[in-house]
Amino acid sequence: MNQMSLIDRAVDMTHIKIAARGVNVYYGDSHAIKDVNVEIADKTVTAFIGPSGCGKSTFLRCLNRMNDTIDICRVTGDILLDNEDIYDKRVDPVQLRAKVGMVFQKPNPFPKSIYDNVAYGPRIHGLAKNKAELDEIVEKALRRGAIWNEVKDRLHAPGTGLSGGQQQRLCIARAVATEPEVLLMDEPCSALDPIATAQVEELIDELRQDYSVIIVTHSMQQAARVSQKTAFFHLGNLVEYGDTGQIFTNPRDPRTESYISGRIG
């Protein structure tokens, strides 16, 4: 998994999960995202790459309306999840975020026990009818987060006591526990050491079986390792979008090429 094997990655393009049409984002006066059109496939890992400040994280946060929490942020254009506009007035961001989960740059476990961290989402969304069901959901999520074996004996210890890599996997488990359909990851490995990074990357590849995963990263190697599709952002524009193999071996846009070869960064 860790080699740059770019061939034989069958991308199932039959089902488009998220479609963005003419998306613009403004922070007060500054124009952060300029007319982005993109279609993201289900059960695929899509990587957003680009230099810092290019708008890739901003665009990611549009996909589950996390930008709503910032007063000065304004979004225009359409973003469709299963053909439903997520910026429609009737859409409740709370319901949306249950479907589109998010993992953040820095591991952010709540100051609660490991169990309560994972059970938080199922509890607020009412996914479990009783304690036994909740236990089951938590265990399943922790197994999916590939951390079950490490924490099964101390489920009631505080989540903040884990190591950085463990914390991030806990956060992934927490996001998975609400059974989302899309998982957004905002530079999930930037605060982790190489070993923890490898573990998380492995996990991402496994998650692809069930979810559409979108990952923002500024490590090109990581994008190459984990993703099937890659989008390159530059100065708020989506410059190029295509199969990961094609982007890294045969970019069409000169800007993409410069970035890949390390001339802009």
Binding site: T69, L96, R97, A98, F104, F110, Y120, G121, T178
Partner: peptide, 10 residues
């Protein structure tokens, strides 16, 4: 912390 919770749909 808030982002984490809001991101889960709270």
């Amino acid at each position: 912390m808030r982002d984490g919770s809001l991101g889960l749909g709270a």
